[in-house]
Amino acid sequence: MTTVAVLADPPREGLVLSELVAETPLSETETVKLYTAMLRDVCRAVEASGGDLLVNYRGDDDLPAHDGESSEAQVRAAVAPALESPDEARYEVQVGSSFSARAGNTVSHLLDQEQVTSAAVVEPTAAFLTRGIVDNAAMKLRRHEVVLGPAGDGRVYYAGFADGIDFGDAYESPAVETLTDRGVAADHSVDFLPMTPVVESRGDLVTAITQTAARAEAGRNHPGHTAQCLAELGVDVIAGADGPELVRE
């Protein structure tokens, strides 16, 4: 069984999805809503799988000063409505000065201290993650020490490990190549999952809007919280002279 850690920031304005605020019609308040919806879909997919959900949140000492609820309280409040058994969810604070360090510390602790069979790190922006993907990854981790889920622009939405690697700057762009290099350098077998979008940039948002609309229309599996949030935000994709454009409905 794989322990799947979702590395989450508290949903705060100015902290999450800042690239979308700069590049799209979405405001900071709206990006917080979208981030929360994606985090819910991701955590629900993990809970529904055969893996163990671990929500790893950024500690307040590692974040800009904030008046209001603690990071843990905000993350718990964001995740709980999506879970069938919210009281059984496990929450732990992240440790490390960078994403690579936080991911590495989490995986190393799970493998070395808790002696789990395999451990994985998942991006909270991987709204299209499904139970099937998580379970497929767990099966692959029985045969390979490293399993990666590629996203656009060389990113990864999933990184699973049955044995450790050198995590120093392991998520340096392009993360899928860097993590593969580290796995090969450790004499590990590396395998891959189907490419799945993350939603962090303007292009990602175009993909998310069109994919959720198409999947919903076709009656296929789609991220429910994210799809509902996108519909409520009222942002649509139209054909423009220079490619897809984001517009308010």
Rank of each mutant, 00 (worst) to 15 (best):
P10V: 00
G14P: 08
V16T: 06
S18R: 14
S18D: 12
S18G: 13
V21N: 00
E28D: 08
E30P: 02
L39F: 05
R40I: 07
V42F: 08
C43V: 07
A45F: 00
V46H: 04
E47S: 01
D52Y: 13
N56K: 11
G59P: 14
D62E: 14
A65F: 11
S70W: 10
E72R: 15
Q74G: 13
A82M: 12
L83F: 09
D87M: 12
R90G: 11
R90A: 11
V93I: 15
V95D: 04
V95T: 14
G96P: 11
F99C: 13
L110G: 01
Q113G: 15
A120P: 00
P124L: 07
T125D: 09
A126C: 02
F128P: 05
V134K: 14
A137F: 04
A138K: 11
L141S: 04
G149E: 00
P150D: 01
P150E: 00
G154A: 02
D163I: 08
G164N: 06
G164H: 09
D166F: 00
D166H: 04
D166P: 09
S173R: 11
V176H: 04
E177A: 06
L179E: 03
R182H: 09
D187Y: 07
H188C: 06
V190A: 03
L193D: 00
P194Q: 01
M195S: 13
T196P: 11
V198F: 09
V199T: 07
S201R: 05
G203N: 03
D204L: 02
L205R: 00
T212L: 09
E217R: 12
A218H: 06
G219A: 02
N221K: 12
H225M: 13
T226P: 01
A231E: 11
V235Q: 09
G240L: 10
A241E: 10
